[in-house]
Simulated scan of single mutants.
Amino acid sequence: MKCRTILLVEDNQAHVRLIREAFRESQLLHETIAVKDGIEAMAYLRREGQYADVLLPDAILLDLNLPRKDGREVLAELKSDPTLRHIPVLVLTTSSNEQDVRDSYDLHANCYIKKPQNLRQLLSIVDRIQQFWLETVTLPSDRIDRAI
Protein backbone atom coordinates (compact mmCIF):
# COMPACT_ATOMS: atom_id res chain seq x y z
CA MET A 1 0.00 0.00 0.00
CA LYS A 2 1.26 3.48 -0.91
CA CYS A 3 2.17 5.85 1.92
CA ARG A 4 -0.16 8.86 1.92
CA THR A 5 0.89 12.31 3.07
CA ILE A 6 -1.58 14.58 4.81
CA LEU A 7 -0.85 18.25 5.40
CA LEU A 8 -2.69 19.47 8.48
CA VAL A 9 -2.94 23.26 8.63
CA GLU A 10 -4.02 23.92 12.21
CA ASP A 11 -2.92 26.42 14.86
CA ASN A 12 -4.55 24.66 17.82
CA GLN A 13 -1.98 22.16 19.13
CA ALA A 14 -4.64 20.18 21.02
CA HIS A 15 -6.51 19.65 17.73
CA VAL A 16 -3.25 18.67 16.01
CA ARG A 17 -2.58 16.01 18.66
CA LEU A 18 -6.14 14.66 18.48
CA ILE A 19 -6.21 14.49 14.69
CA ARG A 20 -2.79 12.81 14.58
CA GLU A 21 -3.94 10.31 17.19
CA ALA A 22 -7.09 9.59 15.18
CA PHE A 23 -5.01 8.89 12.05
CA ARG A 24 -2.65 6.69 14.10
CA GLU A 25 -5.63 4.53 15.05
CA SER A 26 -6.01 3.59 11.41
CA GLN A 27 -4.13 0.91 9.52
CA LEU A 28 -3.36 3.38 6.74
CA LEU A 29 0.30 3.85 5.89
CA HIS A 30 0.57 7.63 6.16
CA GLU A 31 2.53 10.63 7.32
CA THR A 32 0.80 13.64 8.86
CA ILE A 33 2.69 16.90 8.59
CA ALA A 34 1.33 19.78 10.68
CA VAL A 35 1.92 23.48 10.09
CA LYS A 36 0.57 26.19 12.34
CA ASP A 37 -0.54 28.98 10.00
CA GLY A 38 -1.29 29.95 6.43
CA ILE A 39 2.14 31.40 5.69
CA GLU A 40 3.83 28.19 6.77
CA ALA A 41 1.30 26.16 4.75
CA MET A 42 2.10 28.06 1.56
CA ALA A 43 5.87 27.78 2.21
CA TYR A 44 5.39 24.01 2.54
CA LEU A 45 3.26 23.76 -0.60
CA ARG A 46 5.65 25.93 -2.61
CA ARG A 47 8.62 23.98 -1.22
CA GLU A 48 10.37 27.05 0.14
CA GLY A 49 13.10 27.27 2.78
CA GLN A 50 13.07 24.32 5.17
CA TYR A 51 10.48 22.61 2.96
CA ALA A 52 12.58 22.59 -0.22
CA ASP A 53 12.84 18.79 -0.35
CA VAL A 54 9.31 17.75 0.62
CA LEU A 55 6.83 15.95 -1.58
CA LEU A 56 3.47 17.60 -1.92
CA PRO A 57 0.67 16.10 0.16
CA ASP A 58 -2.05 13.78 -1.08
CA ALA A 59 -4.63 15.82 0.82
CA ILE A 60 -4.82 18.96 2.95
CA LEU A 61 -6.89 19.38 6.12
CA LEU A 62 -7.32 23.14 6.42
CA ASP A 63 -8.63 25.17 9.32
CA LEU A 64 -10.17 28.50 8.32
CA ASN A 65 -9.27 30.60 11.33
CA LEU A 66 -5.49 30.76 11.23
CA PRO A 67 -2.99 33.41 12.30
CA ARG A 68 -0.99 35.48 9.81
CA LYS A 69 -2.84 34.16 6.73
CA ASP A 70 -6.25 32.60 7.18
CA GLY A 71 -7.54 29.45 5.57
CA ARG A 72 -9.61 31.32 2.98
CA GLU A 73 -6.46 33.06 1.71
CA VAL A 74 -4.57 29.77 1.62
CA LEU A 75 -7.42 28.11 -0.26
CA ALA A 76 -7.59 30.95 -2.82
CA GLU A 77 -3.82 30.85 -3.40
CA LEU A 78 -3.45 27.13 -3.77
CA LYS A 79 -6.52 26.65 -5.97
CA SER A 80 -5.26 29.40 -8.31
CA ASP A 81 -1.85 27.71 -8.64
CA PRO A 82 -1.74 25.15 -11.49
CA THR A 83 0.83 23.00 -9.66
CA LEU A 84 -1.24 22.84 -6.46
CA ARG A 85 -4.92 23.10 -7.39
CA HIS A 86 -5.42 19.35 -7.88
CA ILE A 87 -4.62 18.58 -4.23
CA PRO A 88 -7.87 17.85 -2.37
CA VAL A 89 -8.55 20.44 0.33
CA LEU A 90 -10.82 19.41 3.17
CA VAL A 91 -11.83 22.38 5.28
CA LEU A 92 -11.94 21.18 8.90
CA THR A 93 -13.04 24.04 11.12
CA THR A 94 -15.13 25.02 14.13
CA SER A 95 -17.19 27.47 12.08
CA SER A 96 -20.74 26.57 11.15
CA ASN A 97 -21.30 30.00 9.61
CA GLU A 98 -23.17 29.63 6.31
CA GLN A 99 -21.02 32.32 4.68
CA ASP A 100 -17.85 30.40 5.60
CA VAL A 101 -19.32 27.27 4.02
CA ARG A 102 -20.31 29.15 0.86
CA ASP A 103 -16.98 31.00 0.63
CA SER A 104 -15.03 27.76 1.04
CA TYR A 105 -16.88 26.09 -1.82
CA ASP A 106 -16.62 29.25 -3.94
CA LEU A 107 -12.85 28.97 -3.42
CA HIS A 108 -13.01 25.33 -4.61
CA ALA A 109 -12.69 23.45 -1.33
CA ASN A 110 -13.36 19.77 -1.93
CA CYS A 111 -15.44 19.48 1.23
CA TYR A 112 -16.35 21.36 4.40
CA ILE A 113 -16.42 19.57 7.74
CA LYS A 114 -17.34 21.15 11.05
CA LYS A 115 -15.04 19.98 13.84
CA PRO A 116 -16.95 17.84 16.30
CA GLN A 117 -17.24 18.58 19.99
CA ASN A 118 -15.97 15.25 21.29
CA LEU A 119 -13.19 12.76 20.64
CA ARG A 120 -15.47 9.90 19.56
CA GLN A 121 -16.98 12.04 16.81
CA LEU A 122 -13.54 13.26 15.74
CA LEU A 123 -12.29 9.69 15.46
CA SER A 124 -15.31 8.85 13.32
CA ILE A 125 -14.77 11.84 11.03
CA VAL A 126 -11.06 11.12 10.59
CA ASP A 127 -11.89 7.49 9.83
CA ARG A 128 -14.33 8.59 7.11
CA ILE A 129 -11.82 11.08 5.70
CA GLN A 130 -9.23 8.34 5.55
CA GLN A 131 -11.55 5.79 3.99
CA PHE A 132 -12.87 8.12 1.31
CA TRP A 133 -10.06 10.57 0.50
CA LEU A 134 -7.06 8.32 1.09
CA GLU A 135 -8.32 4.84 0.26
CA THR A 136 -11.36 5.07 -2.03
CA VAL A 137 -10.84 7.97 -4.42
CA THR A 138 -8.16 7.90 -7.07
CA LEU A 139 -5.65 10.64 -6.46
CA PRO A 140 -2.85 11.62 -8.84
CA SER A 141 -0.17 8.99 -8.44
CA ASP A 142 2.66 10.76 -10.19
CA ARG A 143 4.41 12.78 -7.50
CA ILE A 144 7.03 13.98 -9.98
CA ASP A 145 4.68 16.71 -11.24
CA ARG A 146 3.75 17.57 -7.68
CA ALA A 147 7.35 17.85 -6.54
CA ILE A 148 8.37 20.51 -9.09
Score class of each variant (00 low, 15 high):
residue 90 L to K: 10
residue 101 V to Y: 12
residue 43 A to H: 12
residue 2 K to N: 06
residue 65 N to K: 08
residue 120 R to E: 14
residue 112 Y to F: 15
residue 135 E to C: 13
residue 105 Y to W: 08
residue 49 G to Q: 06
residue 78 L to R: 00
residue 36 K to C: 01
residue 95 S to W: 11
residue 136 T to M: 04
residue 21 E to Y: 00
residue 72 R to P: 11
residue 107 L to S: 10
residue 56 L to G: 12
residue 72 R to S: 12
residue 97 N to Q: 08
residue 123 L to M: 07
residue 58 D to P: 00
residue 139 L to Q: 00
residue 102 R to Q: 10
residue 40 E to H: 11
residue 29 L to D: 08
residue 127 D to P: 04
residue 84 L to A: 01
residue 116 P to Q: 12
residue 135 E to A: 12
residue 76 A to H: 08
residue 61 L to P: 09
residue 47 R to S: 14
residue 60 I to D: 14
residue 66 L to V: 11
residue 30 H to I: 03
residue 141 S to H: 03
residue 126 V to P: 08
residue 98 E to S: 06
residue 125 I to N: 01
residue 23 F to S: 10
residue 38 G to C: 01
residue 40 E to G: 01
residue 63 D to P: 02
residue 50 Q to I: 09
residue 125 I to P: 03
residue 119 L to R: 13
residue 42 M to N: 14
residue 54 V to Q: 07
residue 95 S to D: 15
residue 77 E to H: 11
residue 138 T to Y: 01
residue 46 R to C: 11
residue 105 Y to P: 00
residue 77 E to P: 00
residue 67 P to N: 09
residue 97 N to S: 11
residue 116 P to Y: 10
residue 108 H to P: 06
residue 60 I to N: 09
residue 61 L to N: 03
residue 141 S to R: 07
residue 100 D to Y: 15
residue 106 D to R: 10
residue 13 Q to N: 11
residue 59 A to R: 03
residue 93 T to F: 01
residue 23 F to A: 14
residue 147 A to T: 08
residue 18 L to Y: 06
residue 90 L to V: 06
residue 64 L to Q: 11
residue 24 R to S: 05
residue 45 L to V: 07
residue 125 I to M: 06
residue 81 D to A: 08
residue 18 L to E: 01
residue 132 F to S: 10
residue 68 R to S: 05
residue 49 G to Y: 04
residue 139 L to T: 00
residue 87 I to T: 03
residue 48 E to F: 06
residue 20 R to N: 05
residue 26 S to V: 04
residue 25 E to Y: 07
residue 34 A to E: 11
residue 21 E to S: 09
residue 87 I to R: 01
residue 132 F to Y: 14
residue 42 M to Y: 13
residue 50 Q to R: 09
residue 6 I to Q: 02
residue 4 R to D: 02
residue 10 E to F: 08
residue 75 L to A: 07
residue 140 P to I: 03
residue 95 S to M: 15
residue 110 N to E: 12
residue 98 E to N: 10
residue 25 E to K: 05
residue 119 L to I: 15
residue 148 I to R: 00
residue 94 T to M: 12
residue 108 H to C: 09
residue 16 V to Q: 01
residue 10 E to D: 08
residue 9 V to L: 12
residue 129 I to S: 10
residue 49 G to R: 03
residue 83 T to I: 06
residue 43 A to P: 13
